[in-house]
Design a protein around this nucleic acid. Structure first.
Length: 355
DNA sequence: TCTGGGGTCCTAGGACCC
DNA sequence: TCTGGGGTCCTAGGACCC
């Protein structure tokens, strides 16, 4: 059964919101992210800033050196969250089958729904127009027979794009794209694929599934399917959170001592609060440490019973830190992560053993 | 040039049980 | 004296996504 999947993504979301809220920023290179002196990185660069080579995840110090006229703004996540909710509402006004991927991005399954809009393209135009009217932001939209094709279509049209890949046109659409466009192919996998002679999606598609499997295991076969424009993944509207974490990179490296322990307590406080707010408890507590030389380690311990208590989380994290911290070590990052999550409400029909 | 913070998923080795 | 095989849980690290 043929599906129609839409992928929609707001253009340079955080930076666009800042330009929307502050007219003085419009038409100028804007970067959202932490200050360079606190080792901030670029979270989002406006399209004007991208002309200078500024990109997400770039160290802010480097970004401002590349583009000294860029205006840096600290992120305002609450504001982005408000707008995100408005945009997701627009999506849900079309179909309940909406899968948000992040604040600015979602998949929609619109199979059989687009006729009243004058087809898939008409529906894409409707979404773009409605989001623009309600929020003032531009949306890029991709349409295809599955998630892989729809997402790559969105990226191909950015910014303010609308790309519809007709059923049957997948192979031609994907053939010349670099392997990097496929979901799950980052710098490492791209290099490793290139080592095996695969530089474009078309080159993967033309190999055999067995070849890919021999080189990259089960992942290789999936890759081959995606490269051939096949992807059966459904839209997932609800999912269980598996992990709650908080971490902080310090403006300057810290040795183990009162300041680091205070930071640990602060992180425990934040994580415990978020666990309680989402009605979850955790059975596995982990710490993450990054040394001055950027080497990163994690240490975790599991408890017999789940907890959302600050003191218990802090005690576990403190024990883990005691075990690894050595005289002379300096750390640039510290984090606490909680996993093995369960609902804190007892299941209906079960009674507490003791009262 | 000097590298964020929130996550997800996968792999691999070892302990332990039957 | 030598040593199976399946299953599950735990731990550590790493790639990747936005």
């Amino acid at each position: 059964m043929g599906r129609t999947i839409i992928h929609a993504d707001l253009d340079a979301f955080y930076a666009s919101v800042e330009q929307l809220d502050n007219p003085e920023l419009r038409g100028k290179p804007v970067v959202v992210g932490g200050p360079p002196e606190s080792r901030g990185v670029v979270t989002t660069a406006s399209y004007e800033a991208r002309k200078f080579g500024l990109r997400s995840a770039m160290p802010m110090s480097r970004a401002l050196r590349l583009c000294p006229t860029a205006i840096r703004v600290s992120p305002r996540f609450d504001r982005y969250g408000d707008i995100s909710r408005q945009v997701m509402e627009v999506f849900r006004s079309v179909t309940p089958l909406v899968e948000p991927l992040s604040m600015d991005e979602a998949f929609l399954d619109v199979t059989g729904l687009h006729a009243p809009y004058g087809g898939a393209r008409g529906l894409g135009e409707y979404l773009k127009r409605t989001v623009k009217e309600k929020t003032g932001l531009t949306l890029s939209v991709g349409v295809g027979i599955n998630k892989t094709v729809a997402k790559i279509a969105t990226d191909a049209g950015k910014p303010d794009g609308l790309v519809v890949v007709q059923p049957g046109a997948e192979a031609a659409f994907l053939a010349l794209m670099p392997t990097r466009v496929l979901w799950g192919i980052g710098p490492r996998s791209e290099a490793s694929l290139a080592d095996s002679g695969f530089r474009t999606v078309g080159e993967i598609a033309q190999a055999t599934a067995d070849q890919l499997e021999a080189l990259f295991g089960a992942r290789g076969r999936e890759l081959w399917e995606m490269a051939n424009g096949r992807d059966e993944r459904e839209i997932v509207t609800e999912y269980e959170r598996k992990y709650v974490g908080a971490e902080n990179t310090f403006p300057r490296d810290l040795p183990d001592g009162p300041a680091l322990r205070e930071e640990l307590a602060h992180l425990a406080q934040g994580v415990a609060e978020r666990l309680r707010n989402s009605g979850m408890r955790s059975r596995t507590i982990a710490i993450k440490l990054r040394y001055s030389n950027f080497r990163t380690i994690t240490r975790q311990m599991s408890r017999p019973d789940p907890t959302d208590d600050v003191q218990e989380i802090l005690a576990a994290a403190g024990t883990l830190l005691d075990r690894v911290a050595e005289e002379g070590d300096h750390f640039r990052l510290l984090g606490i992560h909680c996993s093995k999550l369960t609902d804190s409400e007892p299941k209906e029909g079960t009674l507490p053993l003791f009262e």
